[in-house]
């Protein structure tokens, strides 16, 4: 299994390198793995034009993280409040539908214009990217809460707020988590798009600069750094999720993969 995966990677990179060296692919536009690797080495050992690579990564991660935390908290709160409040949900549903139909990423230029080249505009883009996904899931999760358990809690003596806290939120949590998982990726996309449109630091800014200099190796190297960051973020989310979902029986899918591994 792993052997095959490695084989594909090596084959793909080797093929790319060869095609570029034979000039079947124009290295000016498509670069080649050896040049990209050399660029990555330069970044990590000698730093970038704007300073240390770690600083660039940190800027992007910080923007994504801030947008993610704010967007996710706002989404969870809004989803639960509207999910628990029939009237508010009915009144606002039209606006939610409209807001949801706008491709959020087109808001990025507005934020960069209004909030400037600093972090605020990137955080704002990441925020809107995250907010709607988390909101929609939290709302749905609240609506899907088991009526039997709600009735049970009522009879045991729970007040509406106690029901929200002990039944609604825990049962919406698996929905919320599913959305957090994908939306952290969105937060990174938001931050990077914001940086592409105009920034002083960050991975997106490095890619934009490389693009401006017709430096294909720089663009690809920036993408690789980005992929690594996104994968690490995804792994972190998975680990957190596992911890919090201890109570749940392992799903059939998980049991299969575990059986496959052992």
């Amino acid at each position: 299994m792993l052997g095959l995966q490695v084989l594909i990677l090596v084959g793909g990179l080797g093929g790319w390198e060869m095609l570029s060296r034979l000039e079947w692919l124009d290295p000016f536009f498509f670069s080649m793995p050896s040049m990209i690797a050399a660029r990555l080495a330069t970044w990590f050992f000698n730093g970038t034009a704007q300073g240390s690579i770690w600083f660039q990564i940190w800027v992007t991660v910080e923007e994504a993280l801030a947008g993610f935390l704010a967007g996710a908290s706002a989404g969870v709160v809004a989803g639960i409040v509207l999910g628990r409040n029939r009237l508010a949900a009915d009144v606002l549903s039209v606006y939610i539908l409209i807001a949801n139909a706008i491709p959020r990423i087109v808001l990025a230029p507005i934020f960069v214009m209004s909030l400037g080249l600093g972090m605020a505009s990137k955080i704002a883009v990441a925020f809107v990217m995250v907010f709607f996904v988390v909101f929609a899931n939290a709302f749905q999760g609240v609506r899907e809460a088991d009526r039997n358990i709600v009735a049970h809690a009522q009879i045991l003596g729970a007040s509406p707020w106690q029901i929200t806290r002990t039944v609604i939120i825990p049962s919406a949590l698996s929905w919320i988590f599913a959305s957090l998982h994908v939306s952290f990726g969105f937060a990174i996309v938001g931050a990077v798009v914001g940086e592409l449109l105009g920034a002083r630091y960050g991975i997106g800014q490095m890619i934009a600069t490389a693009q401006g200099n017709f430096d294909a190796a720089g663009v690809f190297a920036g993408m690789i750094v980005l992929v690594a960051v996104a994968l690490l973020a995804d792994l972190t989310m998975t680990l957190i999720e596992r911890r919090l979902a201890r109570w749940r029986p392992p799903s059939a899918h998980e049991m299969q993969t575990q059986a496959g591994r052992s």
Binding site: N148, H152, P170, W247
Partner: peptide, 13 residues
Amino acid sequence: GFVFQADALFPWR
């Protein structure tokens, strides 16, 4: 007090 037919325990507790 009420004992339900279906499992009405809180699965996350």
